[in-house]
Design a protein around this nucleic acid. Structure first.
Lengths: 166, 166
DNA sequence: CTAGAAATGATAATCATTTTCAATTAGAAA
DNA sequence: TTTCTAATTGAAAATGATTATCATTTCTAG
């Protein structure tokens, strides 16, 4: 699945005329704030990792992030990247995506929650939001007495262009 | 997550007075039929694996299944179990569940599709069905021009009894 | 019955991730 | 600022699940 394919990402269209969900830039202080809020010490490694994550592509693997960070400062070990990503996932600063049996991908948890639809042919990822689905999930949880903390909704199918290729 | 916890499974209530979704018993011929439909040769190993899967617990790991099968016939290697499970997943005879970062669990693909809700405290799994959610998923796919093949919906939260423990 | 492809199991390999541990560092307290 | 100590780090080894290899065995079409 997805072998030798280039990943593309389709973001849901911004509501108005924003250029992107992540056009806001983070100062070093912003970065430090975020790390402190996780009850972690501020280190140059963590700043660099978080910064790189913020600047980079939306869905990145730990390995990819490690390689990017390496190029800037080769003193960062991959254990640190993995550790910090795991920590950030726990504090919900990043969200883990595990699609199919691929390595886990990470994204900064977006303010506007969204789910993912993946093309099983070319690996393209579409992000979407649907409040109705969210509401129904809450309803289901209530029926079984669960208090929901989070969820994973991944749709899989064939995108338009891959459909046409056949 | 879930360390040293016993997994429990809550099935959705059967519609009428069926005792279970999987009360039907499979003859050896049924098993052979299923394997042939996958364009695979019928071997005693595959029969045993499929049979054990059918008789056993609903959400099983490859390792667990291997161990069960081993007890009956120690000539079955785990490579065969993994291989066959993977093949069955591809032909949609079984469905892979990857919840959190646990090892993949398998279940015979149920006729009535359902999703899962997992208690992050005790690991209990509740199966549920919700047609409205399914319909909305199709609608989303249509909006983006996707032709859906399958999906993964996992809800995570705290179950009633774990809520009370606190 | 036989040939040839498919399937098998033991083992080694892979891959992502986690742990270990000695050395370093952040940051609270003095 | 200096000191202290727990948190953090990187390198390397360990882990755990899964997959590939390959010589041997087994199906099954003919």
């Amino acid at each position: 699945m997805f072998e030798n394919k280039s990943y593309g990402t389709v973001l849901p269209l911004p509501a108005n005329n924003e250029t992107s969900y992540f056009d806001e830039s983070w100062t070093e202080d912003d970065l430090k704030q975020i790390i402190r809020k996780m009850n972690l010490k501020v280190t140059p490694q963590r700043i660099l990792i978080l910064q790189t994550l913020h600047e980079g592509r939306v869905h990145i693997t730990a390995q990819e992030l490690y390689e990017k960070v390496q190029k800037i400062n080769s003193d960062v070990g991959f254990a640190t990247v993995y550790r910090f990503l795991k920590g950030m996932a726990e504090s919900r600063v990043v969200t883990e995506l595990r699609m199919g049996s691929m390595p886990t991908r990470y994204e900064l948890t977006p303010k506007k929650h969204h789910d993912h639809m993946t093309c099983t042919d070319c690996g393209k990822i579409v992000e979407f939001q649907n409040k109705n689905i969210e509401d129904l999930q809450e309803k289901v949880a209530r029926q079984y007495g669960f208090k929901l903390t989070h969820h994973v909704l991944e749709l899989y199918g064939i995108c338009t262009s891959c459909q046409m290729k056949k």
